[in-house]
Amino acid sequence: MSTSDRRVLLIDTAIALIATRGLRALTHRALDSALELPAGSASYYFRTKRALIEAIVERITSRSRDEFTAAALTPTGTPTPESVAAAIAGRLDRLLADRRDQLIARHALLIDLLDDRDLHAGLARCLFSTERATDLFRAMGAADPGARADDLVAVIEGGVFDRFAGNRTGLPANTPASIDQLTRLLLPHLTV
């Protein structure tokens, strides 16, 4: 296994540990044990817990960036609120289906790192981009696109949290009902 593959495996395992056992379970020793590696292996790749958390933030950020680019959600022409809501709902549904562990780990880290300006800022922006939302509202001809973008991201954050840890945890992702629920949630906030 290459060094970069081993690093990704360690990061993904760290995310899974946080998601299943909580942030306190994240230790170098726990990573070694979970992957059946010799003692000290995880600390060889990530000398400190902070270095590991920085790598987690980068992993979530880069995966989000790659998925956003692949989804081609950049507005062209004049998008309608309905088409934008459906496109974003589809992306959020895939996020809930494919990256649940990342969502849980991110929220655990957000709370734990409130006082760490750098890491908290990176975590706050690693899934949803207010810059892209601002571009979207500009393309839709909205007044005050920056404020609208901030509001939309807040609604998305709350809606996603509700689905993996709140009242709607019973609504399975990757279903038409999931996408419909997310579309209904977003549509009022996209109407210009």
Rank of each mutant, 00 (worst) to 15 (best):
Val57Lys: 08
Pro38Ala: 15
Glu54Ile: 00
Arg65Asp: 14
Leu10Asp: 11
Ser43Gly: 03
Arg59Met: 01
Ile104His: 02
Ala30Trp: 08
Arg100Trp: 00
Ser2Phe: 02
Arg47Met: 00
Asp116Ile: 02
Leu31Asn: 13
Gly22Arg: 05
Thr61Met: 01
Thr183Pro: 07
Arg117Tyr: 09
Val8Ser: 04
Ser33Ala: 15
Thr27Gly: 08
Glu67Gly: 02
Ala97Ser: 06
Arg106Met: 04
Met1Asp: 07
Tyr44Gln: 09
Val8Phe: 01
Gly141Val: 04
Ile18His: 09
Ala105Val: 03
Thr175Arg: 11
Glu67Asn: 11
Asp32Pro: 11
Pro172Ser: 09
Tyr45Ile: 02
Leu23Tyr: 06
Ser178Gln: 05
Gly122Asp: 12
Thr169Cys: 08
Phe161Lys: 13
Gly90His: 10
Asp66Tyr: 01
Thr175Gln: 07
Phe161Glu: 13
Leu95Cys: 03
Ala39Tyr: 09
Thr78Trp: 05
Ala71His: 01
Ala177Met: 05
Ile60Thr: 12
Asp116Pro: 07
Ile15Val: 15
Phe137Leu: 03
Thr80Glu: 12
Arg94Cys: 00
Arg106Cys: 02
Ser62Arg: 12
Thr27Met: 06
Ala147Ser: 12
Thr76Asp: 11
Thr48Leu: 04
Leu152Arg: 05
Gly122Met: 07
Thr175Trp: 04
Asp32Arg: 10
Leu152Lys: 05
Ser43Thr: 11
Leu31Phe: 10
Leu95Pro: 00
Val192Gln: 10
Ala139Trp: 02
Thr20Trp: 02
Gly166Pro: 12
Ala143Lys: 13
Asp180His: 08
Ala89Cys: 09
Arg59Asp: 12
Arg91Ala: 14
Asp112Phe: 05
Lys49Leu: 12
Thr69Glu: 13
Asp101Cys: 00
Ala142Val: 09
Glu36Trp: 08
Leu113Lys: 11
Arg99Glu: 05
Phe46Asp: 06
Ala142Lys: 06
Pro75Ser: 06
Arg132Tyr: 09
Ile88Met: 13
Phe164Trp: 15
Asp93Arg: 02
Glu36Asn: 15
Asp115Trp: 07
Asn174Lys: 05
Gly146Cys: 01
Thr61Glu: 12
Phe128Lys: 00
Val84Ser: 13
Ala86Asn: 09
Ala142Cys: 10
Pro79Val: 10
Asp118Ala: 14
Arg6Trp: 02
Leu185Asp: 04
Thr175Lys: 06
Ala105Pro: 04
Arg168Ser: 14
Arg94Ala: 10
Leu92Asn: 06
